[in-house]
Design a protein around this nucleic acid. Sequence first.
DNA 1: TAGATTGTTAATCGATTAACAATC
DNA 2: TAGATTGTTAATCGATTAACAATC
Lengths: 215, 215
Amino acid sequence: MERNNKISKKIIERLTKYLKCLGNFSPDDYISSEEMGGLLGVTAAQIRKDFSNFIPAFQYNFGIRGKGYHVKSLTEALSQILGLHKENNLIIVGAGNLGGAILQEGGFIKDGFNIVGIFDIAKNKIGKEYRGIKVKSVYEIENLVKDTEVDIAVITECNPIAQEMADLVINSGIKSILNFTPMELKVPKNVAISHIDINSKLQELNYWKEKVKNI
Amino acid sequence: MERNNKISKKIIERLTKYLKCLGNFSPDDYISSEEMGGLLGVTAAQIRKDFSNFIPAFQYNFGIRGKGYHVKSLTEALSQILGLHKENNLIIVGAGNLGGAILQEGGFIKDGFNIVGIFDIAKNKIGKEYRGIKVKSVYEIENLVKDTEVDIAVITECNPIAQEMADLVINSGIKSILNFTPMELKVPKNVAISHIDINSKLQELNYWKEKVKNI
DNA sequence: TAGATTGTTAATCGATTAACAATC
DNA sequence: TAGATTGTTAATCGATTAACAATC
């Protein structure tokens, strides 16, 4: 079956914004594309277009003409698209400061994601505890994967071994990686990867701050 | 003077990649757009086009026809564009786990950026020390700004007060913010802001991992 | 029914790529 | 000079927006 309408990264990025925005409304409210667009700085047409990409798969419309979008239904639809209707298990590779922060700072990881393990390669980190989760050796990732589905590995090791960690994770059978290190990681085509590069973001911001000076 | 060629976010994003890639070569090497493109998964044409946007401002070409780009010169040009030729001072607002991680984990913040302060609103955090920097009250940001140029504020407070922190930072005269919280922050048009939203990134990845399954 | 707002089509805009003359 | 590779122009591709018929 040919999937003809190509979903772009930008569309998916916006879906997460829409979902977040909906959190500010009561489930039984109705919201129009116009209203939501105003809140998010996006055109109403874009929102409707974005949703329309998923109507074929869903077999029913997202909104009601003349009325808008039912907050609860739309939230459910978007959650479904983003795979948040089920629990997604993730592990953290690297029990350094960043790994600990992600685990401990309550607000970062929200509904739909469960942290099921934290791993490190350094002996002095193994055995430590974060939020009731004991740090284990990275060589035990394989064992965990045997009896627990692990959806995502978050790699926070910030040194030359990030690629090794990625390889290890992939060899254990994990199919997606969130890369928090400054390194570019090579992964096979059947593994999804996303990169949060703090230093690059700072560099970008550094460019834009010069531009806004003239406003 | 009309600036006719509009620099997009995507161009700036790619410049940071090019710069990172150059780090793997000796300063006196020459690299062609073809070679670099191969390494980064970008077309050679795109690289040349990206650079060409900045030639008018620089008054000289970035490359040498028949030879390629001189690593050192190109690195300098890109650094200049991204404002990395000078030191950029930044402060961290929020001495929680994430703030501490960014400060302590060596690899995250690199050349061109200096951390000149860390601030928190919670009394029990104030006075603690990270890498020799004492945590101060957020109400002292204003004082710091009086005698030290602060280019960027990294906001890591992960709770309802993020917007207050942003307002405070902006009122002190800081013109750009890296927002690490899950909240959308409102800022005036003359303030540059960039958002790293871990949860949104996880949601996006969650979508893409389902797609790659069928590869 | 009249008013409102969706879902969709066509038009516009912007970003990427291909091609090639310029030139090292 | 011949070969290589840039910088730039024109063609293509994709993403956004405007407009409107469908319909609640």
